[in-house]
């Protein structure tokens, strides 16, 4: 994985990508491995220029497609409609996490000039059904364990929340450093936050 990168990945980020990919392509809390791989393929097709979702995946594929290329255009009404057609909020939340983490893996690979990780054959394991018993709708559209805060927004599905933080920290910065404006590594904190703000602006994400 990333072995053909034109620019070498750091060891910690390479390890994070490997772990993320193994997790993303296996069964999750509510989706099978085949369903998660279908979501990944739908997102990749959207990034490659497909303008409409593949109807074969139904609302699962629709959610993946729009999350990939126009997440800012989603509305409560769209999520209501997906739910009415069979994609319940728990499964929708898992799709959000799979598309989001796939974007981290794929955009990192592309940025380094590497091939995208290959999609494996689905495994036959069933979903774990591990959901947070006390989660409910708070201030967003999905089950949550509290007000929706970025690194904890998948925690209604605990394994997805853990997987999010496992890639977020090596790619962005350690959680313990978030409040440290003097933090720096290969880049200064100002350079890191500029990239974060500019990327978010270009994605029309204002949160």
């Amino acid at each position: 994985m990333l072995s053909d990168a034109k620019l070498a990945p750091s060891p910690d980020r390479l390890a994070a990508v490997r772990a993320a990919w193994a997790n993303l392509t296996a069964a999750g809390p509510t989706l099978t491995s085949a369903e998660r791989i279908g979501v990944i393929n739908a997102a990749r097709a959207a990034w490659a220029g497909e303008v409409q979702p593949d109807a074969g995946l139904g609302p699962l594929g629709e959610a993946a497609h729009w999350l990939a290329i126009d997440a800012g255009g989603l509305t409560a009404q769209v999520v209501d409609d997906l739910e009415a057609r069979g994609l319940d909020r728990w499964r929708y939340l898992e799709v959000v996490g799979v598309v989001a983490r796939t974007s981290n893996v794929d955009f990192y690979a592309r940025g380094l000039g590497a091939s995208l990780p290959a999609v494996p054959e689905p495994d036959g394991a069933p979903p774990s059904r591990a959901i947070h018993a006390d989660a409910g709708i708070t201030d967003g559209w999905v089950p949550a364990t509290g007000p929706l805060m970025a690194p904890f927004s998948l925690d209604a599905l605990p394994s997805e929340g853990d997987a999010l933080r496992s890639i977020h920290e090596p790619m962005y910065m350690p959680m313990r450093a978030m409040g440290d404006s003097a933090y720096g590594d290969e880049l200064s904190r100002a350079q890191i936050e500029y990239l974060a703000a500019r990327s978010s602006y270009l994605n029309e994400c204002f949160y």
Partner: peptide, 24 residues
């Protein structure tokens, strides 16, 4: 390489926060 990682992470975080309907 570090900059690529930061940009890639915010592709993830943007889709995440928009997708869950997080308020500003």
């Amino acid at each position: 390489e570090r900059a690529v990682g930061v940009c890639a992470t915010f592709q993830m975080m943007n889709r995440l926060l928009d997708g869950v309907g997080a308020p500003v």
